[in-house]
Design a protein around this nucleic acid. Structure first.
Lengths: 144, 144
DNA sequence: GATTATATGTCAACTATATTGACTTACTGG
DNA sequence: CCAGTAAGTCAATATAGTTGACATATAATC
């Protein structure tokens, strides 16, 4: 590497390679089911937010409903996710993982957790908290 | 957020949102020139590795030469990058940023550096090093 | 009760980014 | 001379996203 005038260049590069490594193993697991990263994100947020609505998912993922439609349809038809109308407002559809969906989502999260655990292995609890705080600070810099 | 059985879930989510925030501003700058993330990666690695060859770029980016061809052609024809045959081995093409390419790449790196600086603002030098070490450890976990 | 607003779904056309396979051109090196 | 290597190109295909237009069902409001 050359041209290190900027002290943040190391971090830019590290984050690029880290993210690529971080998504590689989930991508391999998903590919076995003929699924991709778009399906992963849906599975992830439905797992983290049970009974999430389609609209909430759109806000979180920041994609158009047309972009959500195709991977979500696939997850519904392959029985990874179920959809039930809200009891109060029947226009709203609430999403849940099926046991099959939970199993796949768990495999994906386990793979990523394992990578993080290995990355944290040689740093202390203080450093671990520093990593999370900094990474969250970065998230928070998203433009409105 | 629910279902926090796994202590790494916070980190998985933070990294997803951090990476999205981190690429958003470069994406906006690139879009003004009608370019995308593929062009950014090429500009970045040509900037960091002057006189890099096409083959080295393919190895670094881990994409097919057909996937590289179209964005690289665009960067050459729009004079962001120049291509000169190696003096020793005339089959090899060495890539360099033009002043125009350096200017764009610098704008992109500056935007990302600024985000990192802001994220690091409230953590100490020790924590900063911890973040970089951990993120690099994550990069290093890529399967061969 | 009629109208308006909201939540979701769907079709269509387009773009960007990637893949694999097949082939060409130019050059290198034994 | 010939085999191998570096790069480029064409074609077909897949995925993931966009915007625009429109449909349907339900809720909320005047």
């Amino acid at each position: 590497m050359v041209d290190q005038k900027n002290p943040e260049h190391d971090a830019i590069e590290a984050l690029y390679f880290a993210y690529r490594a971080f998504t590689a193993e989930p991508d391999r697991i998903l590919a076995k089911q003929g699924l991709g990263r778009a399906h992963h994100r849906i599975l992830y947020f439905v797992a983290r937010t049970p009974a999430v609505t389609v609209g909430e998912l759109l806000n979180t993922l920041e994609i158009s409903k047309q972009a959500l439609a195709s991977p979500l349809r696939r997850l519904l038809s392959d029985a990874y996710i179920t959809q039930t109308p809200d009891t109060q407002d029947k226009r709203v559809r609430r999403l849940q993982l099926t046991p099959k969906g939970r199993k796949l989502e768990s495999a994906l999260s386990t793979a990523q957790s394992a990578m993080l655990r290995r990355a944290f292995e040689h740093v202390g609890a203080q450093d671990r908290r520093a990593w999370l705080d900094t990474t969250r600070a970065l998230s928070a810099l998203a433009k409105p």
